[in-house]
């Protein structure tokens, strides 16, 4: 067996697909928590891109960037879930379409 590494393009394509699944989920799904998870998926796709390039360049910059993305995503999740909790407390629903009292 020849020892061939996985080509770079495979990782980048995977991350692009993950990103698009996340974006599609954000637009299509109607549950607030699922929509929020879709955003996390998009951020993780970005992490994959950073780590791939970082591996290619033999640098740590991209790895460090992905750590920052994770930390920020955790902070955003903490705040986001708290906000979603208050929405649920006030309205007893987690469907996005039911949470739109403001209209043109």
């Amino acid at each position: 067996m020849p020892n061939v590494p996985v080509p770079l393009n495979y990782y980048l394509t995977l991350s692009a697909i993950l990103f698009m699944i996340g974006a599609a989920g954000f637009i299509i799904r109607r549950n607030i928590i699922t929509v929020f998870m879709s955003i996390e998926l998009m951020l993780n796709a970005v992490n994959l891109t950073f780590v791939t390039f970082s591996y290619q360049f033999r640098q740590v910059d991209g790895h460090i960037y992905s750590f920052f993305v994770m930390v920020v995503a955790a902070a955003e999740a903490a705040v986001g879930l708290a906000i979603i909790l208050t929405v649920f407390k006030n309205r007893s629903t987690l469907t996005i379409d039911d949470v739109s009292s403001m209209k043109n």
Partner: peptide, 21 residues
């Protein structure tokens, strides 16, 4: 604001990751 803000941040740093590449 949270959902759309997070969504837009995703796009922004996806662009950044390609710039890095």
């Amino acid at each position: 604001y949270l959902l759309l803000g997070g969504f837009s941040t995703g796009f922004l740093i996806y662009g950044f990751s390609i710039f890095y590449g």
